[in-house]
Design a protein around this nucleic acid. Structure first.
Lengths: 168, 168
DNA sequence: GCAATATACTAGGACATCCAAGGGTTTGGA
DNA sequence: TCCAAACCCTTGGATGTCCTAGTATATTGC
């Protein structure tokens, strides 16, 4: 994890694939492996920025989502669907955010099954600060050229639609 | 996680960013979020294919790496560096692969600090089968157009080099 | 109106990742 | 030569994710 490798390990893997007669799938394999690794790098950067705020990426995402909801409150299942994570992951995140005083659970006015997650004043403030930090230190210095950003949004958007993420 | 959303949640987030006056970083934010989500989708597909083999992605990666080493053996720290994961993750993976009889630990002949991980015959066989399945069911049907695969390899390769993954 | 089905959240377990700390081994400078 | 620093792996703790129930509440159908 420390020092740079002398050569690109993913390019090496691609060569290994070709050498074993899997040349027809070597390129997609390399692209997919590169996505996995890139996600790892980006996640580490994001978590590094959020650490001083006492937030992880999962908790930040939930906080940010709530801060964009007009009422500052969302049902658990709605949050789970929008964040595209398992409901139990939302339960876990809410537990910890609630312990930190950033959100509160409240009963749904008409449906006794659902629980609303609501941002506290501190939660709203912290979300603002954390977003400003992420904008300045990660998104503003992403390391992607402007044109490449457009390509990524286009390619990955197409992929996500085909994967059934959204109808649009 | 189940039904497709009516609209792309990442495009919505990008609009939210622009609406709040962060238009200058909205696009990189969307690209990065898309990478996170794409990784999630791909990982789920991969784990689904590997499940019948009793493997997770982390264990498969280690198995595949060993199968490409001429001797079928690698030091732990070498594996950690090449897979770009924390040493404790390798310890964890080796523990489970060893329990499954797919690898064995052996002492390094000259360096008493180092432990070698060695593929067993079953490990080598399973690695071959699992790779064939991944090639057929994931890499061979990635959902990326040929030209987009090239773009991804180029863009993400540049990113990873800038991030200090390799010198090349 | 009541039972059957569907929905929403929570509890417990498995797995992976990281960090911090510890114990054994090797290396290199005093 | 010898001891401190560097290196390698493992253990223990925290977090996150998913899956499989399990409990409670709503909705639907007869």
């Amino acid at each position: 994890m420390g020092t740079p490798l002398p050569r690109d390990p993913i390019a090496d893997a691609q060569r290994n694939w070709e050498r074993h007669g899997w040349g027809d799938v070597a390129a997609p394999m390399a692209a997919i492996t590169a996505i996995m690794r890139t996600q790892q790098i980006l996640l580490a950067r994001i978590e590094g920025v959020l650490k001083p705020f006492g937030l992880t990426f999962a908790r930040y995402e939930l906080l940010a989502l709530l801060s964009f909801a007009r009422s500052g409150a969302l049902p658990m299942n709605k949050a789970s669907a929008l964040l595209q994570v398992h409901p139990t992951s939302v339960t876990n995140a809410v537990d910890r955010l609630q312990d930190a005083g950033l959100v509160v659970r409240s009963p749904h006015p008409t449906d006794g099954r659902t629980t609303l997650i609501e941002l506290t004043a501190e939660g709203r403030t912290l979300a603002k600060s954390a977003t400003a930090a992420l904008n300045a230190e990660v998104f503003g210095q992403s390391g992607f050229a402007g044109h490449d950003v457009d390509q990524l949004i286009r390619i990955l958007g197409k992929f996500r639609r085909n994967a059934g993420d959204f109808a649009d």
